[in-house]
Amino acid sequence: MSLAGLFLITFLLVHLGLNLLVITNNDPMVFNKAAHFMSTNKLIKVFEIILFGGFLLHIIYALILQAQNWLARPKRYHKTNKSETSPFSKWMIHTAVIVLTFIVMHLFDFYFKSKFGGAPEILVGGEHYHDFASMVVTKFRLPEFVILYLAAFIFLGFHLIHGFQSAFKTLGLNNKTYTPVIQALSIIYTIFVVGGFSAIPLVIYFQ
């Protein structure tokens, strides 16, 4: 669970790094070529399978652990718990469902279109490229998509802010010096990822 989570956390950074090319470059072909490389390179193809494996492992473990956790308390309390705890941790499974729904939708929006057709193509230097850049721009000109994506990023943030530092504790990586650093990193990482992903629809919409 924790290892798969940390793997997905690193994936998000790669994903964000590529996406930021859309708003940091005036030439849409920079992003298109990067996306082209990601979808055609043999090594990346192997990583793609590992990535789906990581998602699947994370989801399957989550389902098993959550089922065990619910079964561990068949009769719930009348009064909801008032203990002072991390609010994000209490809602992990709920934010997970929201994020997963978003991911499926997101795959339909971009990934499946590139695999099974439906994505616009352009011819540059005798080679066909999917025009992801224009797909992104067309999408984020619509306010409903901007709002949907921003909301999903916020819930992703709630999931990450607990998940990041919790994964280290589960792996037993905890001590006086590193734990505060890990905790600070989890906040910095979350702000960076949520902020970075949110900047893309916002910049495109207000351009």
């Binding site: 652990l65 561990a72 705890t85 991390s86 209490k90 919790s166 280290f168």
Partner: peptide, 24 residues
Amino acid sequence: GNCTNTGACEAECPKGIKLTNIAR
């Protein structure tokens, strides 16, 4: 059940047992 590092246990422990024990 399983631990999700929520910390309610640490908040309610009458003897102040720390969550760092779980990492250990």
